[in-house]
């Protein structure tokens, strides 16, 4: 059966390999942290949904997507960006390289997900004495991006600091944007997702 466009807000994580995108994803999904040594593979991790109440009556369902590690040696598929309402540019505060390359990721976002709101997230804030990317650097970056960045955050997935606050703030911003865009959306109602027909057993053989 065809269902109309779902109200979830797709949020994607972008940034270099190893800056902590999957850790942010884990914090979001299960509020856990796994150190690199006993990190299990991220098999089967796709996306996760969570509802944030923006006020007493209004909720926003954030649907967070992880890259699946595709950025490690190849490029991420352009599909990953499609239909995204927001993108979080993640870098590691102890790695200027991971910060300096963000303009490249930003370009991908504006190319493939041009309507997405963009947020900047410096991760690994717990590494207090190894922080090499300053607030001033982040401000300069935002200015250079002609204010494309809707919010900046500093987080530590290890301690959990700032993570929940970031997602709450993003959901607020998306909630506001969503209200003003509802009418626009109705223009695009005739596309749909395909879902299993009701009554057909899940494990029916396709052969």
């Amino acid at each position: 059966m065809a269902s109309v466009k779902v109200p979830e807000q797709k949020v994607i994580l972008c940034g270099e390999y190893g800056v902590g995108k999957t850790s942010l994803f884990r914090r979001f999904a299960t509020n856990t942290f796994v150190t690199s040594t006993d990190r299990k593979s991220t098999l089967g991790l796709d996306h996760y949904e969570k509802v944030y109440m923006t006020d007493e009556h209004q909720g926003v369902k954030l649907q967070l997507w992880d890259t699946g590690g595709m950025e490690r040696v190849a490029s991420i598929t352009s599909s990953y960006y499609k239909f995204a309402e927001a993108a979080i540019l993640v870098f590691s505060l102890d790695s200027p390289d991971s910060f300096n390359i963000l303009s490249q990721h930003l370009l991908d976002i504006v190319t493939y997900a041009e309507n997405a709101k963009i947020f900047l997230c410096g991760n690994k804030y717990d590494l207090k004495n190894q922080i090499h990317v300053t607030d001033a650097d982040m401000e300069t970056f935002c200015e250079q991006c002609h204010n494309l960045i809707s919010g900046t955050y500093k987080t530590s997935c290890k301690t959990g600091q700032g993570v929940e606050e970031m997602f709450i703030d993003i959901s607020k911003q998306l909630g506001e944007a969503n209200r003003s865009r509802k009418e626009l959306d109705s223009l695009n109602k005739n596309s749909f997702k395909i879902t299993p027909p009701e009554g057909e057993p899940e494990d029916s053989c396709i052969c």
Partner: peptide
């Protein structure tokens, strides 16, 4: 007939992501 938004090229990409999240390594 159905047709995917953004073209048929979205189909291989979707399955590539499936492979990646189950541990597949990609090199282009």
């Amino acid at each position: 007939y159905l047709y995917p938004l953004y073209g048929l090229g979205e189909l291989p990409q979707g399955f590539a992501r499936l492979s990646a999240i189950y541990g597949g390594t990609y090199m282009l």
